[in-house]
């Protein structure tokens, strides 16, 4: 027998009392949605900007290599997306559109269509995610209701910049991925 058959046969041979799969209630959050979301992002060491604030920040930040796949800021790109993500090694800034944001924890959902290349939001030195404030949901439960049966090869909830606390529990931002996350609420 193959290991597959072995394992499945072993499981089949064990009588485990049947338990029904529980239904999940639609838990919400207390408090105003946008404010809760903003507080969550700040708590995750991200920043939240308005469109105007972002537009004034971007030129001052002085990035030479920018990829923008955002529908809101198509003109911000200084280079076109390569085929090989390795070429993004020295990318300064990626600007992407998020599909929706979760107020309780600041997690923002992106799929292949939003990412161009899956490596993009990780390899870039800094990350901006643009989010329509209409697309805020309360908790992860509404988040997954929203994703529902959508099919994407890859999807990710990003909630903040790359961080670590592996040295004496001291929080350090910028472990391997993006060193900052700015969320532009439009």
């Amino acid at each position: 027998m193959s290991s597959r058959e072995n394992i499945l046969a072993a499981i089949k041979g064990i009588a485990v009392e049947q338990k029904a799969l529980p239904e999940i209630p639609d838990f919400g959050v207390q408090g105003e949605l946008t404010e809760t979301f903003i507080q969550s992002i700040l708590g995750n060491k991200g920043e939240v900007l308005s469109k105007v604030e972002f537009e004034s920040w971007l030129p001052k930040a002085g990035f030479s290599k920018i990829v923008s796949l955002s529908f809101h800021f198509p003109e911000a790109s200084t280079l076109t997306l390569p085929e090989d993500p390795h070429e993004l090694e020295d990318l300064g800034l990626a600007i992407l559109d998020g599909q929706f944001g979760v107020a309780e924890n600041g997690a923002i959902w992106l799929e292949d269509d939003n990412l161009g290349l899956r490596a993009l939001p990780f390899i870039t030195e800094h990350l901006v995610i643009v989010l329509d404030r209409k697309n805020l949901v309360e908790t992860m439960h509404q988040g997954y209701n929203r994703i529902a049966d959508a099919v994407s090869g890859f999807g990710v909830f990003i909630a903040g910049p790359s961080k670590t606390a592996d040295i004496e529990q001291s929080l350090v931002i910028g472990a391997h991925g993006a060193k900052s996350l700015r969320v532009v609420l439009v």
Binding site: G43, N105, F154, V156, F157, A159
Partner: peptide, 13 residues
């Protein structure tokens, strides 16, 4: 509240 990256892998690039 959540880890900063929660990646869902469904099919290879």
């Amino acid at each position: 509240p959540v880890t900063n990256y929660n990646s869902h892998f469904r099919s290879p690039s």
